[in-house]
Design a protein around this nucleic acid. Structure first.
Lengths: 133, 133
DNA sequence: TAATAAAACAGTAATCATTATCGTTTTGGA
DNA sequence: TCCAAAACGATAATGATTACTGTTTTATTA
């Protein structure tokens, strides 16, 4: 039952805490291998899932087929660039008011919502302007 | 280049048109096999992707790791039951106004948003009440 | 109607992210 | 120090999806 210390898990947490892009399991694996060269990818997945279950990190699914992880568990929204795939935090007020809209005339219980935005990020916008033919 | 007729694709379209739950590729495969017993799963995937690219159907990603498909391409929102996994259409006004909120103070171009709701559907609510200990 | 090239097919192999298994190592309390 | 539980590394398995390949279908043209 009790969770025991693991250096691997601490490194994973520290790495996620240091990033505000939203790394995938493979990103984490590649990064942690600099500190712990023989860490296993399975260990990364297991610890990421443990941390999600413990509420210490959040799992992000933004439709690109790969899970991203976020050390910031406070409710906030994300933007996904359709050009480069980067996932960026948005500074935006919460819109839980849409739960009421969604629940009107629905016969189940609505507990929450998932929202993310997509488009072209600032960097990719710049590139497009520079690459003018 | 030109798209040629295929009975398989027509059956897939007709099946999707007949459903308002949101079938997965495997759901479609199982259903079409009643009409075309030796249809290949690859054919189902290939045609679903063609139809999505042609704008005739929509691909839905609701975080359960499986793509769902929707014959209704008009903008609308979905509810996902955390108990039974069913995906249900919501009759809810559009909330594209949130794009303005998201774009304020963001240096890229926001093109759209993905939103879905989760909770317990009407059927599962009923079951929970019936299964009282 | 026959010839033909492009498109689509069925069957199967490959890919990719993720999870499960298993024998070994680490942790932490007695 | 002893020991059971937890975690590990390595690897196999899974499940959804895509890619490949030789065959069949479609649709155009002679």
């Amino acid at each position: 039952m009790a969770t025991k210390y693991s250096r691997q898990r601490e490194e994973i947490k520290a790495y996620l805490a240091s990033r505000k892009d939203h790394p995938t399991a493979d990103n984490v694996y590649m990064a942690i291998r600099r500190q712990i060269p023989n860490i296993s990818l399975g260990t990364v997945y297991r610890n990421l899932t443990m941390l999600v279950d413990a509420g210490e990190i959040t799992r992000l699914r933004v439709g690109d087929g790969v899970d991203h992880f976020d050390y910031d568990t406070s409710p906030h929204y994300h933007f996904v660039c359709t050009e480069c795939g980067s996932v960026i935090d948005l500074d935006m007020q919460n819109i839980d008011s849409i739960l009421k809209l969604a629940g009107a005339g629905f016969d189940g219980k609505i507990a929450g919502h998932v929202t993310y935005f997509y488009g072209v990020c600032g960097n990719c916008c710049k590139k497009e302007n520079t690459e003018s033919n």
